[in-house]
């Protein structure tokens, strides 16, 4: 990897100005970091203040009549189910597609394909929702019916299957399609940055293409892949409109082929416009819970990344 570096000869720049530049620059970047701190603290404070009445309220006053925990529990489960389905589908496909673009496809194809995938991240979630409800859901009905008839003994696939196709499974698939571009686009950038020397060394030792990818590309890219999955998960967890339009919500059930379940973000979006008083703080408290879920998920991801730190370029 050779990079043309154009700098003036050392010494032409007065060391005082250089030092000032250094401190200004580091000061600026520190300030930016602290600003993010401040914003996040403000958001958290806002959430806590607005959600506070919910935790003090009598259980009977909360929606469902059995306290906040009973109300939020099915929503947490629903959110996790949708995100897990989305990740299970999108992660392998997203990474493989990124590999296709970076290492398999001829350059003539890979550039436009990468471009199109980037574009897909921009399609508004309303459109994905509308597409999911009108095109995908009806198309999946035969599959649901078949699954419930032949694999109905598994609780996830117990029937009778929904006749509109607007189920948790469909919502998960739509979410998967929405987060696919995030995983692909970020992984692709990292795959292409793999040091050329590593790749060529592997090939020179007689490795097949897959062995080369496994031994030089994937280890190098692993933290980045995990980062991209986390970003994608963040989007899947917080996605509102697509789920709100696709899912026919209901009480918590195990079957993914029947209408039922609900996610936190969709619950907020659906009920917020008509909410006031306690209901409003309930919904914001639900937002706070979603926030906490992301926190936990990210802590886990951080722990995983920390184990592969030695592969980072800037160690």
């Amino acid at each position: 990897m050779s990079t043309t570096v154009s700098t003036r000869k050392p010494g032409t720049e007065s060391s005082a100005a250089g030092r000032a530049g250094d401190s200004i620059f580091s000061g600026l970047s520190l300030a930016a970091g602290i600003l993010i701190f401040a914003v996040l603290a403000a958001v958290a404070l806002f959430l806590l203040l607005q959600a506070a009445p919910t935790f003090g309220a009598a259980p009977a006053d909360v929606t469902g009549g059995k306290g906040f925990f009973t109300y939020i529990w099915p929503l947490i489960v629903g959110t996790l189910i949708a995100s897990v389905i989305a990740l299970l589908i999108a992660t392998p496909i997203g990474i493989l597609v990124a590999l296709y673009i970076s290492h398999y496809a001829p350059a003539k194809i890979s550039n436009p394909v990468g471009y199109v995938i980037d574009l897909l991240a921009a399609i508004p979630s309303v459109i994905y929702g509308a597409w999911g409800a009108t095109v995908l859901a009806p198309a999946l009905v035969p599959l649901f019916t078949w699954l419930s008839e032949h694999a109905g003994f598994i609780p996830f696939f117990s029937g009778p299957a929904s006749q509109t196709g607007k189920t948790m499974f469909t919502a998960g698939v739509v979410l998967a399609i929405m987060i696919l571009p995030i995983i692909t686009s970020m992984s692709r950038e990292i795959f292409t940055q793999t040091p050329k020397l590593h790749e060529e060394a592997a090939l020179a030792l007689g490795a097949t293409r897959w062995e080369m990818i496994r031994m030089s590309v994937l280890p190098f890219a692993r933290p980045g892949i995990i980062s991209s999955i986390m970003l994608a998960l963040g989007r899947a967890l917080g996605e509102t409109m697509a789920v709100a339009l696709v899912l026919s919500s209901g009480p918590m059930i195990a079957s993914l082929l029947k209408s039922g379940n609900q996610t936190i973000a969709a619950e907020i979006a659906l009920n917020f416009p008509e909410a006031y008083g306690l209901r409003l703080s309930e919904l914001i408290a639900a937002g706070l819970v979603l926030f906490l879920i992301t926190l936990v998920v990210n802590m886990i991801a951080r722990a995983i990344i920390a184990r592969y730190k030695e592969f980072s370029g800037a160690n």
Binding site: T63, T134, P138, Q163, T164, K166, G250, P251, G260
Partner: peptide, 25 residues
């Protein structure tokens, strides 16, 4: 304002949503 959860059935968002689901089923 909310549909009673014990009678939960197929549902959709907004007037246009329920009408389009009904038209399609």
């Amino acid at each position: 304002q909310a549909w009673p959860s014990k009678y939960a059935a197929e549902n959709n968002k907004g007037t246009s949503g329920v009408v389009s689901t009904t038209s399609g089923t």
